[in-house]
Write a protein that binds this DNA or RNA. Structure first.
Length: 424
RNA sequence: GGCGUGGUGGCAGAGUGGUUGAAUGCACCGGUCUUGAAAACCGGCGAACCUCAACGGGUUCCGUGAGUUCGAAUCUCACCCACGCCGCCA
């Protein structure tokens, strides 16, 4: 949720900041909010002043009754103004509900450091490692996965539909190995506290992180009006919803290993080959809570934690800073980590590291107390995948493949897999 | 799923329909005392919103939402959640 006070203070500047997203549909609600906000405040002021008057008279009634004095005149006045009070109250409430409804559709303000432009303006911050040449002899991961018996996409599709992969044998074990490797790394070396959250969440929780109300179509919904999580970000960020964190609690990080479910409703036929884009996948997610002044540093730190996974796996990757027009709805600033996949011949996004500033915290009511006795303030929330499994698996298979059709297991995974090579 | 009990401030825990945002205790903050700390004593201490240049003023909040009433933490209804017992079950 945007800060209405910022909009009120300088609507022009606010509008320009939102305009950087190059999304016309984001500006329309901003313009409506200015008018709605004015109308709402006028209604509140009017309703509250009548209430104040009525409260004073009610107190006078109580005083007189105690002293056994007549109060019929006041009672008549109160009865007469009762209907008007209800009316004014209702008007204010309706305006407030509309105000909130519209406000929830406005995206976060881009961070000042974010470059202008659309996806074409995304900036490569750094490239790490040496890319294995995409020569003709290299196989894409879907061929390797099939020949090595690591996953069976046709049978996965038989169970559910396309985009629901079935891993088996060493492939299934690789999934488990990646989970353990990543969790061990983040808990032991990066100081994260491990959580295992619910995979179904409610509407208010999804509204807190920003998936609702705008992106309902992207998720799977149950008959109980619960949603399968599209990312662990949702339950983990909301752990502290409607809470005030005590002084000294910040900053801290949580890590969770969960499946993620995404309908990918509008992306059929687009980069869907093999494991590149699937409806269900596993992911280890980092979530951090920070004081506002500290969040940029926390963002860099967390991005480094995600990069460390790629580093340990010996994979070549690059870090992209997304331009304002390509940054997600709730995010103020995002770094994408793209891993090099020589068999596919493409850079694949394996992580998105974002700071949400106070946008999610406002929606979810996550605050902290800077020091004992001080006023609560909204925290800053951040998260990064570290990493999403399918594309990590793609990169491992394609980068570590050998001329004889086998795949060497990266050093750090061997103790989890028990083998140093995938063979047919 | 059935029956029952309960949801009050950071925590614990009172609360006859009328100065109750809410007693009391703990915690916390400031002060006195002390070489220092503790103890003791004194004072303070919820959140959100509207308004105001500011001082200040006002409104709302006792699980959520409706209702009764001039007035609701207190009465009524619905819903949610927690706990207990029974049933079912991985």
């Amino acid at each position: 949720m945007i800060d209405l006070k910022l909009l009120r203070a300088d609507p022009t500047q606010f509008r320009q900041a939102i305009a950087r997203r190059l999304d016309q549909s984001a500006l329309e609600p901003v313009d409506r909010l200015v008018d709605l906000d004015r109308a709402w405040r006028a209604a509140v002021t009017e309703a509250e002043s009548l209430k104040a008057e009525r409260n004073a008279k009610s107190e006078e009634v109580a005083r007189r009754k105690k002293q056994r004095e007549p109060a019929d005149d006041l009672l008549a006045e109160l009865k007469a103004s009762g209907e008007k009070g209800k009316q004014l109250d209702l008007e204010a409430k309706q305006l407030e509900a509309e105000l909130e409804r519209v406000a929830l559709t406005v995206p976060n303000l881009p961070h000042r450091a974010v470059p202008d432009g659309d996806a074409a303006a995304n900036r490569v911050v750094r490239t790490v490692g040496t890319q294995r040449a995409a020569d003709a002899g290299l196989k894409p991961h879907w061929e390797l996965g099939e020949s090595l018996g690591l996953f069976d996409l046709p049978r996965g599709a038989k169970l559910t539909g396309s985009g629901f992969p079935l891993f088996r044998g060493q492939g299934a074990r690789l999934v488990r190995a990646l989970a353990n490797f990543m969790l061990d790394l983040h808990t032991a070396e990066h100081g994260y506290h491990e959580v295992a959250p619910p995979y179904l969440v409610s509407r208010p929780v999804l509204t807190g992180t920003g998936q609702l109300p705008k992106f309902e179509e992207d998720m799977y919904r149950t008959s109980d009006d619960l949603f399968l999580i599209p990312t662990a970000e949702v339950p983990v960020t909301n752990i502290y919803r409607d809470e005030i964190l005590p002084p000294g609690a910040l900053p801290f990080g949580l890590v969770a290993y969960t499946p993620c479910f995404r309908r990918e409703a509008f992306s059929h036929g687009k980069d869907t080959r093999g494991l590149i884009r699937v409806h269900q996948f596993d992911k280890v997610e980092l979530v951090r809570f920070s004081a506002p002044a500290d969040s940029d540093a926390q963002h860099a730190l967390m991005t480094g934690h995600a990069e460390a996974v790629l580093g340990h796996l010996g994979l070549s990757y690059r870090v992209l800073e997304l331009a304002a027009g390509d940054t997600g709805f709730a995010s103020a600033r995002t770094f994408d980590l793209e891993v090099w996949a020589p068999g596919t011949g493409a850079w694949l996004e394996v992580s998105s590291s974002s700071t949400f500033t106070d946008f999610q915290a406002r929606r979810a009511g996550i605050r902290y107390r800077p020091a004992a006795g001080e006023k609560p303030e909204f925290v800053h929330t951040l998260n990064a995948s570290a990493l999403a499994f399918p594309r990590t698996i793609i990169a491992i298979l394609e980068n570590y493949q050998n001329a004889d059709g086998t795949v060497t297991v990266p050093e750090v995974l061997r103790k989890y897999l028990g083998v140093d090579r995938f063979t047919p």
